[in-house]
C-alpha cells in the first residue's frame, strides 16, 4: 500500500466537549490508483486529507492506529523528515487555485521554491525545469508565464500552475481537493483531463476529493463515500453506481440531476448532515434514512464487507437496492 490509514480521527476544540470532525476513517491507496472521495460539504473529506498531509493545526488533534506512506510512519515522524516528504512525494492541490497562489510572488518564484526546497535545484537548471513543468501542464506561452503574478492568471491557468508545483518533484501521490469546483465547466473538463493524463504518464496515485459523482464515474478506480466525518461505503467504481450498498450512497446517486429526467422536481435527500450538537447515538444517517428502523439507533454500525464493497450499515442494500431482510 502506498497510503495506509487506519482508524484516523481529527478532533477540534478541547476540554470536556471536543468535536470529532472525522472519526474511524480507514483508507488504503495503492500505487497508481485513482481513489475518489465523495460526500456533502462538511462531511470531512478535506479534513481527512489535510490530516494525512499533517496540515491540521492546533487546537485540532489527529490520532490514528496507523498512518503510513510507502511503509513510513507519518505520525511518529519528526517534522523535518515529514517536510521532506510533503510537497515532494505527496503533494496536494486545492479548490480555489487563485487564492492558493501567493499574490506577492511570481509563478516562477513559487515553482522554483519547491525545486530548491526538495531537489536543491537552483539557477539556470531550475529555471529550465520550471519551464518544462509549465509546458507539461499545457500552459500556453509558458516562458512568459514564469514572470507573471497570480493576479494576471485566469482560474484555470492558476490551477495548472498549482498542478505544475505539485508534480515538480514527481510525487507518488497527488491529492486533489475539489480541483475543478471553482472553474468554468469547459475548463473543468480540461483540468480533469490533464490530471488523469499526468496520473497515467507518471503512474502516480491520485486521490480526488469531489462532490461530482460524474467525475468519479469517469476517472476513479475506487470510491470512498463520506458522511458526517465517517466513511460509510467504499467500493470499486463500476459496481458502486450499479449496486450501492449504503442507503446514503444510494441517495447521493439518486440526487444526480440526470436521474430525475422527466420528473417535476429533482431527487433530494431531506435534512442536513448532523452537526456538533445533534448527532444521533446510533447510525448517523438515521434521521435522513428512508430505511431506518429501531435497531439502527441502538448501536453505531461498523463497516461490513458486502461483495467487493464495504458499507457502514447493519442492513446493507442488496442488488435491487432494497435493504436485506
Amino acid at each position: 500500500m502506498l497510503l495506509d490509514i487506519k482508524n484516523l480521527a481529527v478532533t477540534f476544540g478541547s476540554g470536556h466537549d471536543p468535536f470529532r470532525a472525522v472519526s474511524g476513517v480507514d483508507l488504503q491507496v495503492a500505487p497508481g490508483e485513482i481513489v475518489g472521495i465523495v460526500g456533502e460539504s462538511g462531511s470531512g473529506k478535506s479534513v481527512t486529507m489535510l490530516a494525512a498531509m499533517g496540515l491540521i493545526d492546533a487546537p485540532g488533534r489527529v490520532t490514528a492506529d496507523q498512518l503510513t506512506f510507502a511503509g513510513r510512519d507519518l505520525l511518529s515522524m519528526k517534522s523535518r523528515e515529514k517536510r521532506a516528504i510533503i510537497g515532494a512525494e505527496i503533494s496536494m492541490i486545492f479548490q480555489d487555485a487563485q487564492s492558493s497562489l501567493n499574490p506577492a510572488y511570481t509563478v516562477g518564484d513559487q515553482l522554483l521554491e519547491t525545486l530548491a526546497e526538495h531537489q536543491n535545484l537552483k539557477g539556470a537548471a531550475a529555471r529550465a525545469r520550471a519551464l518544462e513543468l509549465l509546458e507539461q501542464v499545457e500552459i500556453p506561452g509558458a516562458r512568459s508565464r514564469l514572470s507573471a503574478y497570480p493576479h494576471q492568471l485566469s482560474g484555470g491557468m492558476s490551477q495548472r500552475v498549482m498542478i505544475a508545483m505539485a508534480i515538480a518533484c514527481n510525487p507518488k501521490l497527488l491529492i486533489a481537493d475539489e480541483p475543478t469546483t471553482a472553474l468554468d465547466v469547459t475548463v473543468q473538463a480540461q483540468i480533469m483531463e490533464l490530471l488523469v493524463s499526468l496520473q497515467r504518464s507518471r503512474d502516480m496515485a491520485l486521490i480526488l476529493i469531489t462532490h461530482d459523482l460524474a467525475v468519479v464515474a469517469e476517472v476513479a478506480h475506487r470510491v470512498a463515500v463520506m458522511y458526517a466525518g465517517e466513511i460509510v461505503e467504499t467500493a470499486p467504481v463500476p459496481q458502486v453506481f450499479a449496486t450501492p450498498r449504503h442507503p446514503y450512497t444510494q441517495a447521493l446517486l439518486a440526487s444526480i440531476p440526470e436521474h430525475s429526467k422527466g420528473a417535476s422536481r429533482l431527487n433530494t435527500l431531506p435534512g442536513v448532515v448532523p452537526g456538533r450538537y445533534d448527532r444521533p447515538s446510533g447510525c448517523l444517517l438515521v434521521p435522513r434514512c428512508p430505511y431506518a428502523e429501531d435497531a439502527c439507533s441502538r448501536a453505531h454500525p461498523e463497516l461490513v464487507l458486502v461483495g467487493d464493497a464495504q458499507a457502514r450499515c447493519i442492513k446493507p442494500l442488496d442488488d435491487e437496492g432494497k435493504p436485506r431482510a
Binding site: 498531509m53 496540515l55 515529514k82 517536510r83 521532506a84 516528504i85 510533503i86 510537497g87 515532494a88 503533494s91 496536494m92 486545492f94 480555489d96 487564492s99 492558493s100 497562489l101 501567493n102 499574490p103 506577492a104 510572488y105 521554491e113 519547491t114 526546497e117 526538495h118 498549482m162 508545483m165
Partner: peptide, 23 residues
C-alpha cells in the same frame, strides 16, 4: 489559502511565516 499551499510544499515554519505570510 496560499499559506496552506506553502505548508503543503513542505516548507519550514519560519519560511512560511517570514517569506509567505510577512510579505
Amino acid at each position: 489559502d496560499y499559506i496552506r499551499t506553502a505548508r503543503a510544499k513542505g516548507l519550514s515554519r519560519s519560511r512560511v511565516i517570514l517569506k509567505h505570510a510577512l510579505r
